[in-house]
Write a protein that binds this DNA or RNA. Structure first.
Lengths: 259, 259
DNA sequence: CAGCTTTCGAGCAGAATCAAGCATTATCTG
DNA sequence: CAGATAATGCTTGATTCTGCTCGAAAGCTG
């Protein structure tokens, strides 16, 4: 087990339980206690946790794990969805991407699309997600426009009035929305209201809106509503989606793509 | 198998799996481990992936191990300078960081400063550098404010009118300037005029301005001027700096710290 | 406060990984 | 075709990581 995988597991366990003992972690990850001690010390130096005698506790009050340390769930579904979303994009367009694991995969799928190398730029990407911007910034075929704002550690998204101000000045062809819940009656939703506000603004600036959501998100509700179903043009989800649920979205006028 | 094809395969495998080991990749592509290592190093230099011991990970998702700076020149000087700059910051302040390798080290030095854990937030960081924002975003002790703008691939800096607009709305205590040249008569300078413009604006919004520059930058000139010497309060450089040069800066009224 | 247990930190050995140099092969150029 | 250049594979010495041991320190108990 590599060190970064180990660190990721340690932080996941820590966030889950609030406190983690050296011996306990050593047993679960099947490495020696000395290694765990060294890991804890290094993570503590980076302020990712607080060292205690015998173990470690989470740092501060933040109990939500930053995206960076989460092991991706449903990774293959997300990648299939991402490829399908990437196919909806035409060369030369301006595409908006919100934050989240699915949209990050969309960014990667766009990066490896072979036909997007010509033109300058082949694609303009507008995003409020730091990780997406960082990953795509080195690709010469993309022009990356970042909204300003305050970074939300859990999702890497930039939020707040600064982001709203920047978004007010631009227009895009296609908005790709990563959501935590998407329901016919309650619409698309996020966990954080400031995040939802930025995402809503991005939708309003777009000609077409695509929701990228694996089937576990469908029919669910979440705290902060982004927009109504009527504002969305296309839904891309995986084949595990319930047929009845898909039917409801289609009745509501959406084009549904299952992959 | 040509190098281009190999690089393409490597990146595809990496995107698919998130992490790729040297030996594993060597076996799959049927080349020697030495070649894979060289490929990884070259791709890492182009920021297409992040090198780890034993393999590589997708850029932006996993760690940049804080103690590994293979490509950075003058790494130890930069780290010493960075620590000294970090010591100029008091808890609770708002600090602005421009882009560049030296300022990235300053960000890391701030992250490991032990006395910055109390309060919420202990420090507000304003930056137009994507890599700095991404690295610091997961630290709960910081509030990260990102200027919007268009990403410059070479330096990860956000530039353009969107960045200017956001900076006009904020005020900071301390601006840390990474420069490519700093001369008594010609002032601080960057390679790109749009970058210089954003940096200039950041200085204007700050009460104190610190230039962090290793000794090779002193007495040099570069294309795009950021500001005059008189706008700078403190210069932090390494002990290899020429004494006469340092004297000139002190005569000009700067506080010079050599480490 | 004394005695016991647990945990820590440092040092060491073995294994894995890396960097650099060199020989060989492939590719390009005129 | 000859020479130059670049890429690849192999070898070697150095570095890093991991697990183990042992004395010291910290915490617990009575």
């Amino acid at each position: 087990m590599s060190r970064d995988a180990r660190w990721k597991s340690l932080l996941e366990l820590l966030v889950e339980r609030g406190r983690l003992e050296v011996e306990e972690a050593a047993a679960e990850l099947e490495v020696s206690a000395a290694t765990i001690r060294r890991d804890f010390d290094q993570l503590a130096e980076q302020q990712m946790l607080v060292r205690t005698r015998g173990g470690a506790v989470v740092h501060g009050v933040s109990y939500e794990l930053p995206l960076r340390y989460k092991t991706a769930r449903r990774a293959s579904e997300k990648q299939r969805i991402a490829r399908a979303v990437a196919d909806l994009v035409s060369p030369g367009e301006a595409v908006g991407l919100t934050g989240g694991t699915t949209t990050t995969e969309v960014a990667r799928a766009l990066a490896v699309r072979g036909d997007l190398t010509a033109g300058s730029p082949a694609l303009t990407i507008v995003t409020n997600a730091l990780n997406i911007a960082t990953e795509l910034a080195v690709r010469p075929q993309f022009k990356i426009v970042v909204t300003g704002g305050v970074a939300r550690p859990q999702s890497y998204e930039l939020i707040g009035p600064l982001a709203d101000g920047v978004l007010g000045q631009i227009t895009i062809d296609l908005a790709v929305l990563g959501v935590v819940a998407f329901d016919v009656t309650h619409g698309a939703a996020a966990n954080d209201e400031a995040e939802a506000a930025v995402n809503r603004l991005l939708c309003e600036r777009a000609e077409r809106v695509v929701v990228a959501a694996d089937s576990s998100k469908l029919g669910r509700r979440a705290f902060a509503r982004i927009c109504a179903v009527g504002s969305v043009d296309t839904l891309v989800t995986d084949t595990a989606a319930d047929e009845a649920t898909v039917g409801l979205f289609e009745e509501a006028g959406l084009r549904v793509i299952t992959v």
